[in-house]
Design a protein around this nucleic acid. Structure first.
Lengths: 220, 220
DNA sequence: GACCACTGTTGGCGATGTGTCAACGCAAGC
DNA sequence: GCTTGCGTTGACACATCGCCAACAGTGGTC
């Protein structure tokens, strides 16, 4: 690794060293599950002693959570990372135009950061971890806010937010079909996500609202 | 645990013992991530020596894969597990009726096996595992076949299958909103999934097909 | 330029978890 | 009753993790 080219034992700024270790851990955790990556390997990759990993991140789990946080929070925030011409505000016009532009923007970000994007939306296993799930939930909320802002709808409607969160899962799955399996091209994903979102907010959400039966639990 | 009420060292049929250990491991892996569950704890829960776990499943990872396989494959196959009245074949009638009936049936299965269902659709943070992913992919294919059978559509269209697989992610997310967060009730999930699937196969899929641009990769 | 405090960095220790093996003991067969 | 088969166990060897005292490079002071 080029990051390990410095002589062993070289004294670095804490932020730099921390960032270096975190970066190496990220690359390893991206590819292999938690239990298969040892702190020793992380330290070797970073060219430092294993104890230094514990010094900066306390425990292996702490380091893992940092990696998850970075991977999960980055993609939503990466929407800021746009080409020079693209302004931050959304284009004016009717709903269809705004939605299409938002999806287009999203796909651009996804294509540019596809490695990290896939790492966050990717693996399903089981044995979910409450802390990890909280981080991913937070990222989903941010993404939901962005979608609601793009559609210009109220962001405090519980049912609406639930539907948009579910739509987020569709987004992740569709981008996987595009980037991993290659079964859909970018234009097809664009069409799928645009039409789905438009149908959802225009037709489906009102129907879902009317279908409410608050008195009954999931046993019904 | 009631399963450990037998005297220690009791000789059991291999299938029975194996099933018992697998069952105990399942309950533990359902709630906590892989690295937090030790084989010693699994053995203690099952009331056997730790070495016996290795004897039956080789390695801890092997046991985990068995658990994942059971959890992932069961839900699709559990569709067979229906009340006496419900025949296996789908109701006749137009597309809308068949889709509504299929979703209704699915939600019944999910409600009955909600513990196992949630364990499989719940997302682990990252660190996907190729073997685990293969198992879950297989389960997704089975689910896709069932949806295509319910809609009476061709099951060999790559684009169609990709869209239905993406729809599967919507199903998982919507059921999570229902069972975990309680933001949607069963009727609302039914409405959401029914309308979404109908819109997808009737309107969106043809548009997605026409949007194909085979020559360009994801970099475009 | 020499000394010193500060702190980034390291090797090693104890504790815990995992895989393997030979040996034990309960049930079936002659 | 003895033997055989195999389910089951305790113990050993090894790897990994968290922690701690000691080492060494860097900047400040005279």
């Amino acid at each position: 690794m080029s990051t390990a080219a410095v002589p062993r034992g070289r004294r670095l700024e804490p932020d730099v060293r921390r960032e270096q270790i975190l970066s190496c851990a990220l690359r390893l955790f991206e590819r292999r599950p938690y239990a298969e990556v040892s702190t020793g390997e992380i330290a070797r990759t970073a060219g430092v002693a294993r104890a230094l990993v514990n010094h900066y991140f306390g425990t292996k789990r702490g380091l893992y959570l940092e990696v998850v946080r970075r991977l999960a929070v980055m993609p939503p925030h990466a929407v800021e990372d746009l080409p020079a011409g693209a302004a931050d505000d959304l284009p004016d016009g009717d709903l269809e135009i705004r939605v299409a532009a938002s999806i287009e923007r999203l796909l651009g970000v996804v294509a540019r950061h596809h490695g990290m994007w896939l790492a966050t939306v990717g693996g399903e296993g089981l044995g979910r971890d409450e802390e990890v799930e909280a981080i991913l939930r937070e990222a989903d909320e941010i993404a939901t806010d962005r979608v609601l802002a793009a559609t210009g709808m109220a962001s405090d409607d519980i049912v609406l937010r639930a539907v948009i969160r579910s739509y987020g899962a569709l987004v992740k799955a569709a981008t996987r079909e595009w980037l991993v399996r290659g079964t859909l091209c970018r234009e097809q994903v664009h069409m799928l996500l645009t039409r789905s979102l438009l149908t959802l907010v225009s037709d489906t959400v009102p129907l879902v609202r009317d279908a409410a039966t608050p008195g009954r639990g999931w046993r019904g």
